[in-house]
């Protein structure tokens, strides 16, 4: 198999995930897009490991070991990320990342929630 096939597929999947991270508004959909990007990297790691284990007689199998580590770290990341999203949803009533602007600089008066939340945080 040409190495170009998995490499091109991984590049396309990565850019799909990039579009999702930039364009989505729901925080859980952003997490899904992050998973797509991580999977693209995994595909690259596996393909290059198979290539190197044959072409360079590599017996360390670093690509597959790193793929397993990436999968485990992605599982940890999705757990922590969903816990954060649920905590934000419980506090703010939304998981829309366009509305979570408390730490943004110079948010306008169009968002009536933001000053109250700021005051609550300042007085608490």
């Amino acid at each position: 198999m040409h190495l170009a096939y998995p490499a091109v597929l991984a590049a396309l999947l990565f850019c799909t995930g990039l579009y999702g991270v930039l364009a989505r508004r729901n925080a859980i959909l952003v997490l899904m897009s992050v998973e797509l990007m991580l999977n693209a990297v995994n595909l690259n790691l596996v393909a290059f490991d198979v290539w190197l284990s044959r072409a360079a007689r590599d017996t360390l199998h670093s690509g597959q070991a790193l793929t397993l580590f990436t999968i485990a770290i992605a599982a940890a990341e999705i757990g922590i990320g969903l816990a954060i999203v649920l905590a934000v949803y419980r506090n703010r009533g939304t998981s829309d990342i366009d509305k979570l602007r408390d730490t943004a600089e110079g948010h306008g008066p169009d968002d009536p929630d933001a000053p109250a939340a700021e005051k609550a945080e300042a007085t608490a």
């Binding site: 198999m1 040409h2 190495l3 170009a4 490499a7 091109v8 590049a11 396309l12 990565f14 850019c15 799909t16 990039l18 579009y19 930039l22 364009a23 393909a47 198979v50 290539w51 044959r54 072409a55």
Partner: peptide, 26 residues
């Protein structure tokens, strides 16, 4: 976002194809 994604996809696919066009995985 679509502009960024298409631009990065074009750059990545071009570079990857140019680099691994002749590499064969047995």
């Amino acid at each position: 976002a679509l502009t960024v994604a298409v631009a990065s996809a074009g750059a990545l696919v071009w570079v990857v194809v140019d680099a691994f066009r002749t590499t064969w995985v047995d």
